[in-house]
Design a protein around this nucleic acid. Structure first.
Lengths: 247, 247
DNA sequence: TTTCTCTTACTAACGAGTAAGTAATGGTGC
DNA sequence: GCACCATTACTTACTCGTTAGTAAGAGAAA
């Protein structure tokens, strides 16, 4: 049995683990540091990629371990050997995605200020050529609002971080513009207004993705994203003086 | 057995139905018009409401017929007696929702022009007091982008209609404003721009709902919705002269 | 008496997780 | 450089729970 699920960090206190044995092994001399081999890591990455595809196209609940395993050419028990449980596999997929994102941005500074918003628009442009990824993200996000979903904490955290990053970038831009005189230095732009804008930008991106996935002909993902972000930025910069067509 | 699943319209050619029998009934004299009793209709409505709750909180795939049945105090076979299959139940739920929506707006004219946008904002305000409904809508919408989901056609159609309604209202407002002089009569606002705005408004509403469901403290659903819609409207009305902070 | 609603009881399929065994691999002692 | 052995990476074969759907009959209603 054994079922490693190597948490990189050796000897984690995974109480739930099926092997409570060997805890009191009589002679534990050289504390073997069991580092995973390269081929194992490669295999796991294969499985993670497969899981991303499966959960992306069918959702977490509907996608089975057998589906994931099939794409790698093993059985579902083989997948469990590496990841222990389906929930665990999901969290590993999410962690993997995060790490891949970070790696992708490696070297090139994480954009701040106006560049962050350009980066978001650029992301939408890139995304409109890869519906698979977008679907994975959208399905998982939608599913995560169901009661007790294993990904809801991750998604919530992700949104929280994103909102904070966007809000910070907005504050930066506002400060810059006030200094350069592009913006009236006396203009009051409240934190609440900035937070509203941040939520709205994320929201419009996600919402457009849903529509675009269902009907790519009918929705210009990149165009609408760019337009909305600019609209939201413009209104935010206008502060209390922004036009209020509904008032 | 029999399993009626009365499609209101009697004698629909539901080929898929489990009873292909009685098709060539030898003596069919008085063509009994089998209208469902009131108590039956009431029961079905109970089931539909229960299904809305279940599919809303757990999703379609994860919500079981037993869950639906339990809330009505019958067994899952009882539900199948009325609706034949789970897929059928879902489509009936969606149809029911549509009818309920229409009924709700009955009498009061369907808002057009700027009133439509006020109505959308008002809806967001109302929604922020009923997370259950919002969750149902969000879960179903998210799930519908998975491959072969039974609700994807319905959701796609719904988005399509919504976009068209919003685009029409926008065109109205633009025409009005040009006539009243609020808008330069020479200003060009392309159909594409209007469509982009329509998609964006729907998108921001849906996207904000997801964030709000996951973290109601962190997101001001009504406020952000109102802000975004005004921002999008303002940018649309500005046409080619709109500010382009990212350019 | 016929129709309708609903139950009980079942089937067949599927899915996650467990147990145990097997073949390969690679490090260790020599 | 080789034999040995522990570990790893699986597989097969299950268990157990869950689920949609079916069949047939019971009781009530019209």
């Amino acid at each position: 049995m054994v079922t490693p699920m190597t948490d990189v960090s050796p000897r984690t206190a995974t109480a739930a683990g099926p092997d409570a044995s060997d805890a009191a092994a009589p002679t534990a001399p050289a504390r073997r540091v069991r580092r995973p081999r390269a081929s194992t890591l490669a295999r796991r990455e294969e499985i993670l990629r497969s899981a991303m595809r499966v959960f992306g196209s069918k959702g977490y609940h509907q996608g089975s371990l057998a589906d994931v395993a099939e794409q790698v050419g093993i059985t579902h028990a083989g997948v469990l050997h590496h990841f222990g449980s389906k929930d665990r596999l999901l969290t590993e997929v999410l962690k993997f995605r995060d790490e891949a994102d970070v790696e992708h941005l490696e070297g090139q500074h994480i954009p701040g200020g106006l560049d962050l918003f350009r980066h978001l628009v650029r992301t939408a442009e890139i995304n409109s050529a890869r519906p698979g990824i977008v679907q994975a993200y959208t399905v998982l996000t939608g599913e995560s609002v169901t009661d007790g979903h294993p990904a809801s904490a991750w998604v919530t955290e992700r949104f929280s971080v994103l909102r904070a990053e966007i809000a910070e970038a907005l504050h930066e831009v506002i400060a810059d513009r006030k200094q350069s005189g592009d913006l009236d230095a006396d203009l009051e732009i409240s934190d609440e207004a900035v937070d509203r804008a941040a939520s709205s930008i994320i929201g419009v991106m996600d919402g457009l993705q849903i529509q675009w996935l269902l009907d790519p002909e009918a929705v210009d993902l990149a165009g609408a994203t760019a337009f909305s972000i600019e609209a939201i930025l413009a209104s935010t910069f206008a502060g209390e003086r922004r036009p209020r067509p509904l008032a």
